[in-house]
Simulated assay, not measured.
Amino acid sequence: MSIHATAIIDPRAEVDSSVQIEPYVVVKGPVRIGANTRIGSHAVLSGRTTIGRDNLIGSFSSIGMPPQDLHYKGEPTEVIIGNGNQIREYVSIHRGTATGKGRTRIGNHCMIMSYCHIAHDCELGDHVIMANLATLAGHVELGDHTNLGGLVAVHQFCRVGAYTFVGGMSGIGLDVPPYVLMEGIRNQMRISGINKIGLRRAGMSRGLIAQLDEAFRILFRSPQLLLKDALHKLETEMADCPEVQYMVEFFKTSKRGVAKRTTDD
């Protein structure tokens, strides 16, 4: 273990012997830090926060602080962070609320760039990228391999589906379906097509990408079909494709409504 002399570590904290802690770090409360994790100078970790192995926590970041929620009364909620993440300088991640899920969770191998904010009760999958100054309000869900450009803001309770790329400076007020390219603000949100580059980089086959492209055409570019009919068509004609069925389920389980406007509208 390498802990700088100026760091302050709460005796209740559990810190693996291989962790590196730089100058002026503050760890307060029952924080748990896994193997080979590095904590940058001036970072503050607090509360019931669990950090897995092989993570990089940048300087001046703040993880596990109380949620910015007027109803929070100090309940024992938590932050859970997986393995192999990069959480860069000045990032803030707040713990959950008792009226929400009780936790804020980040998966594995995510890149959370400088000045991002992840509010209470958010759920991030694996391989998520949030570019500088991207902001999540409370209860937001990001699927695996989601990529948010710089200055993106996501409204509370919204979901962004897996493998979706959201262009910089977008304001997300509705759920964004999986596998697509999206940009815009609220009622100006526009979807330009399938995120083919992202899907190829993630290792998806040409055949699967072609299936998703066809599913996109049926959902978004078949004006003769009502949404319920398009979803039924995908359920029956592409029943053997789990990725397409995930897209169908995403629409069916939306509570805020799903962005559906395309650049062809």
Results as ranks from 00 to 15, higher is better:
41 S>G: 12
189 M>I: 10
218 I>P: 08
61 S>W: 06
238 M>Y: 13
152 V>L: 08
230 A>P: 06
82 G>F: 12
233 K>W: 13
216 F>S: 07
12 R>M: 15
149 G>N: 14
14 E>G: 07
114 S>T: 10
31 V>Y: 01
8 I>L: 14
263 T>H: 12
126 D>V: 01
257 G>W: 03
65 M>N: 13
236 T>V: 15
205 S>I: 06
60 F>S: 15
172 I>V: 15
36 N>L: 04
35 A>I: 10
89 E>P: 01
2 S>Y: 12
106 I>M: 07
23 P>G: 06
32 R>N: 09
240 D>C: 03
61 S>M: 03
264 D>Q: 14
219 L>N: 05
203 G>I: 03
41 S>Y: 11
11 P>K: 06
209 I>T: 04
72 Y>E: 00
142 L>S: 06
91 V>W: 03
79 V>W: 02
203 G>S: 14
192 S>T: 14
228 K>S: 11
129 I>G: 09
258 V>T: 05
190 R>Y: 03
225 L>R: 10
12 R>F: 04
56 L>E: 13
261 R>G: 02
242 P>T: 01
180 V>M: 13
226 L>T: 11
147 N>T: 13
3 I>F: 07
211 Q>L: 05
154 V>S: 10
11 P>D: 14
213 D>H: 08
214 E>T: 13
69 D>Q: 01
172 I>M: 09
131 A>T: 07
79 V>Q: 01
33 I>M: 05
170 S>V: 13
143 G>D: 11
40 G>M: 09
45 L>P: 00
90 Y>R: 15
193 G>W: 10
130 M>V: 07
48 R>C: 06
198 G>C: 02
210 A>H: 14
111 M>N: 08
206 R>E: 13
159 R>A: 04
243 E>L: 03
117 H>A: 07
174 L>F: 15
257 G>I: 05
265 D>L: 02
143 G>S: 11
244 V>G: 08
166 V>Q: 04
248 V>Q: 08
193 G>L: 12
127 H>F: 15
100 G>T: 00
31 V>W: 05
117 H>L: 05
24 Y>G: 02
116 C>L: 05
263 T>D: 11
225 L>I: 02
221 R>W: 01
29 G>M: 04
131 A>Y: 10
242 P>I: 01
